[in-house]
Amino acid sequence: MMLKTIRRCYLLVVVFLIPLIASSQPQPETTNDSAALLHQNGQIYLVVLVLSTIFAGILTMLVVMERKLNKLEKELNK
């Protein structure tokens, strides 16, 4: 039971760790005006966080669909 719960959760943990790792990356040096503007207040990292969260969610959806299909295929091909 415990193992099953952990197995269910590890994906979520990974999914939420990725943006954290991403957001802790050092700020790149700016070489031009538009890049300077982009990194000026570090809020681009917030956008990256949001984007990666949404994307991680989409990937989770794909994995869930995959599992459901696997289950159906197994049931029908028994």
Binding site: I18, P19, A22, Q25, P28, E29, T30, T31, N32, S34, A35, L38, I44, Y45, V47, V48, L51, S52, F55, A56, L59
Partner: peptide
Amino acid sequence: CAALLMYTVVAGMLLEIPYLPKLKE
């Protein structure tokens, strides 16, 4: 696929871009 796309989403936003006068960011 998941790993490459996650990399694309994060690195694609944070990568240092060469200076392109028209396209910029």
